[in-house]
Design a protein around this nucleic acid. Structure first.
Length: 476
RNA sequence: GCCCUCAUCGUCUAGGGGACCAGGACGUAGCCCUUUCAAGGCUAAGACCGGAGUUCGAAUCUCCGUGAGGGCACCA
């Protein structure tokens, strides 16, 4: 039985990298009918943001990645919040000290801060506390110094670690530092809690970013020290920006919920992110979550970093929008219509713009002309392709105005038939007739529909008003 | 500085020794369709980082460069 987990730390909204990690973990499990677990890694008391937990739930729900076990779901392997598992880590830390695979360290902190980019690095050196005699340890304890517990890495030799997608990687042990397992505040470090919990929660496959690769051999050593069978690890290539730098919240790059606010559909974001570092081996590009569950194979995960392209996401979002039922699209579009449009048949408007919407946030600008005719230049009436000129436009509008005024049925088809008939009778191209009407009615070069479609939506009064205005401008 | 990973069109990628004068998608350009613009259809330009090997044969294997990214915290 496959068991995977998504293990975010509650430090902010769900990020793109997080989303993909969660997605792949979900897919690996669900492709095989396995279990997907949510675990909260809140072992850093200073950076912990309790409200971020809600963001994680929201993000997961938005993406449709429903977990089977977790803090708000329960399960047989809880608690699923690391700060509630402190005694477990203490006990396991003790075990390693007793077996000689870890030791107490009484040294002062050498913490690195986030803005400490230019810190000078020296070679890995062994900690002086590594070889403290039991008496010396007792002595320190009696002085009231609170120690940390460090992992004892072998002096020499090398550790080979096998990755599901990167293959076998070997590290020299003298390059691995005696990392801290348990901090002096009694909390475990991420690296320690991770190993202990993954084992205790019977995780079979771990998906995580390549930025964690260098801690992998230390994990191997830890599993070995405990005598445990390690899970399979899959290290994902990083997602970077178009300029090659890291996609990060610190640089102000959008997170999952930001993208939704920017007008992207969660299903499109998920689809796009799935293909960033993985491919199905076929030409298919449009996937919903349930399709991914069927075809996902982690063997096809890539090794090199991928750049996040808004161009492609825009296209994919457009594809997902077109795939929506008219009703579903209308429901999504509704909030984007300005108040001033409420008197129009918005379902008709939605039907018109669905094919040409890439992002929901474009909608207000796309439909603004319906509420208010924009100021436009008369040269808009000139179109080489439609054989339309200022003079032909004036004539068409003058001739069709009475026809429009006499229309009894004001519908797209009726209007179209009427105008088409006029075009034929007067020996003109349909385009030559439609062009000035569409222009008069919209004041725009590009509109989300043809002349008669717009006329239908605007209604007879407003259409006639706009046509008369155009005509008077052309006549003067 | 030390360690690790990676390297095919601008971007996402297919490719696992001959099927490759390298395929698809986004973007770009052009054409068609058309009541505009889209959408859709068709077409075009566009890449194997460099150098040595191995081999009858290398985008594919090896090594060396170079470039990019990641890590080296009582952060995850």
């Amino acid at each position: 039985m496959i068991r995977t987990r998504f293990a975010p730390s509650p430090t902010g909204q769900m990020h793109i990298g997080n989303l993909r990690t969660a997605l792949y973990a979900y897919l690996i499990a669900k492709h095989e009918g396995g279990t997907f677990i949510l675990r909260i890694e809140d072992t850093d008391r200073s950076r912990n943001q309790p409200e971020a937990l809600q963001g994680i739930y929201r993000g997961l729900a938005l993406a449709g990645l429903e977990h089977d076990e977790g803090p708000n779901k329960g399960g047989d392997y809880g608690p699923y919040v690391q700060s509630e598992r402190l005694p477990i880590y203490q006990e396991h830390g003790q075990r390693l000290v007793e077996s000689g695979n870890a030791y107490y360290c009484f040294c002062a902190k050498t913490e690195k801060t986030d803005d400490d980019e230019e810190a000078s690095y020296t070679e890995v050196t062994r900690d002086p506390c590594r070889n403290l005699s039991p008496e010396a340890v007792a002595e320190k304890f009696s002085q009231g110094i609170v120690p940390v517990i460090r992992q004892r890495i072998p002096e020499s030799g090398s550790t080979t670690y096998d990755d599901l997608i990167l293959g076998s990687i070997t590290f020299e042990n003298n390059q691995l530092d005696d990392q801290i397992l348990l901090k002096s505040d009694g909390f475990p470090t991420y690296n320690f809690a991770n190993v202990v919990d993954d084992h205790l929660m019977a995780i079979t496959h771990v998906v995580r970013g390549q930025e964690y690769l260098s801690s992998a051999p230390k994990y191997s050593l830890l599993y070995e020290a405990f005598g445990w069978q390690p899970p399979a690890y899959a290290h994902m290539p990083l997602i970077v920006k178009e300029d090659g730098s890291k996609f990060s919240k610190r640089a102000g790059d959008p997170g999952f919920e930001d993208l939704v606010r920017m007008g992207y559909l969660p299903s499109a974001i998920l689809n796009y992110v799935a293909l960033l570092g993985w491919n199905p081996g076929t030409d298919q590009e449009i996937f919903y979550l349930e399709d991914l569950v069927k075809v996902f194979d982690f063997h096809r995960i890539n090794v090199s970093p991928a750049k996040f392209s808004f161009d492609k996401l825009n296209w994919m979002n457009g594809e997902h929008i077109r795939l929506l039922s008219p009703e579903a699209f209308h429901a999504l579009a509704l909030p984007y219509y300005p108040e001033s449009l409420r008197n129009l048949d918005l379902e008709r408007v939605s039907a018109l713009i669905q094919l040409r919407t890439e992002k929901l946030t474009e909608i207000p600008a796309m439909v603004a002309f319906l509420a208010e005719l924009p100021a436009y230049e008369l040269d808009l009436f000139e179109s080489h392709k439609s054989k339309s000129s200022l003079e032909s436009s004036r004539k068409v509008l003058a001739n069709t105005l009475p026809l429009l005024e006499n229309m009894t049925e004001w519908s797209n088809t009726a209007l179209f038939e009427q105008l088409k008939a006029y075009a034929q009778e007067s020996g003109q191209k349909v385009g030559t007739v439609m062009w000035p009407i569409r222009t008069a009615v919209s004041g725009l070069a590009f509109t989300p529909g043809g002349a008669t479609e717009l006329a239908e939506i605007l209604g007879k009064d407003e259409t006639l008003k706009r046509v008369r205005l155009a005509l008077s401008r052309l006549e003067s």
